[in-house]
């Protein structure tokens, strides 16, 4: 599922909740969002970025655009020495977009 799909599913969930529909219909929708493509791709990030955010910064308050720009810079910069240079080259631009939007959305939700 795409991120857009995940968000659409969450919107659908909210509408269903307002309409007082049975929970049975809800769970697949929220699970689809929480376990969707963007969530799966972003799952690796918190393996390093779940800490207080000093030497490895947190993204608290970062916009999707900022995250995307940083990932893009890591991906394109030659001669970089960090793990992020090596990792970012493994993701397509579409995936970087999905990860950036997902992380920014999660941060807002927090």
């Amino acid at each position: 599922m795409t991120l857009k799909g995940a968000l659409a599913a969450m919107t659908g969930l909210a509408l269903a909740a307002c309409a007082g529909e049975a929970g049975k219909a809800r769970e697949p929708a929220t699970l689809a969002a929480g376990t969707g493509e963007a969530a799966r791709l972003a799952a690796a990030c918190s393996g390093c970025h779940a800490g207080p955010g000093a030497e490895i910064a947190s993204l608290e308050g970062r916009s999707a655009g900022d995250i995307r720009a940083m990932l893009g810079a890591y991906k394109s910069e030659r001669g970089g020495t960090t793990v992020m240079h090596r990792l970012s080259r493994g993701y397509t631009d579409t995936e970087i977009e999905a990860i950036s939007t997902y992380l920014a959305t999660q941060a807002e939700g927090g």
């Binding site: 990030c45 800490g51 947190s58 608290e60 995250i67 970012s88 927090g110």
Partner: peptide, 22 residues
């Protein structure tokens, strides 16, 4: 620094989902 969010943010996002799932 690039992709990432704090554990608190990540957990908060998940629990928002969780609350809706109850």
């Amino acid at each position: 620094m690039t992709c990432g969010l704090t554990r608190r943010q990540f957990a908060a996002g998940l629990s928002a989902t969780a609350a809706a799932t109850a």
